[in-house]
Amino acid sequence: MKNSKLKGWLYLLPAIIFLGIFMVYPLVDVFVYAFQEGFNFASQTYKGVGWFNFDYVLRDPYFLQAVKNTFILVIITVPVSTGLALLISLGLNSIKPLKNLFQTVYFLPYVTNTLAVGLVFMILFKKTAYTDGLVNLIINWFGSESIDFIDGPYWAKMFVMCFYTVWVVMPFKILILTSALASVKQDYYNAAKIDGTSKGRIFRRITLPMISPMIFYLVITGFIGAFKAYSDEVAIFGTDLNVAGMNTIVGYVYDMLYGDSGGYPSYASAAALILFVIVLTITVINLMVSRKNVHY
């Protein structure tokens, strides 16, 4: 008995060592930095211990802007992308011809490089000396003025941001949902059909409950992913997100560490911890909601 326990630990050892060095230790470090006032990497010194860093970060207009941006992004993109993915999956699931082709097409964004996609979005939306971009051409055609989506008003930039995010995260959701839909046994639908169940009721009372665990999984990972948004913003608006007013919380953390005005690991750590608390809260709320609505 004792011997087998020892063996178990031995098998776990490589994983524990790696996780310890690359995950647990940095996490502890972040926690420590967050409470050290004015920590300096080079000299490894700090002035004091306390809530000072949080105080600073929470008053920093750049951080508040980043929080606002992130929340807008999360609140818009998670429901929209999940809903659209569900619609597309339902469509994919109900067609026979060309199903595989469409599945591949819808999955393409997932394997495409973020920066390449960003470039395409630039072509679609960016105003240059030569052209106002494809989308503006369409807007002009309908008789409206061109809008500068990349350097223009906040709502326009936010629209591009959300559009982009939805487009990037959707393939994975479609993939998961199509397989979830395909795994609902035909017998349930046959039984419902025999009993004269309407299409809407079949969807609400059978399909949706059956795939609810997968939807829930997508919502949770969707929330977490959206809260961690950063690289997509860089792909569209460049590295100076604060100037563009499109920074996110993770972007703020990065800027505090390595940005032009960076070198403040304490502020960065404090911001990261705040993000952690936000994500944790949202996830716990999600879990509580799901316990009521997700079946088996």
Binding site: D187, A191, I206, P209, M210, H295, Y296
Partner: peptide, 11 residues
């Protein structure tokens, strides 16, 4: 119709 595997809605 009673199905071979019953097809009761599990939820």
């Amino acid at each position: 119709l009673v199905f071979q595997n019953y097809a009761l809605y599990p939820h």
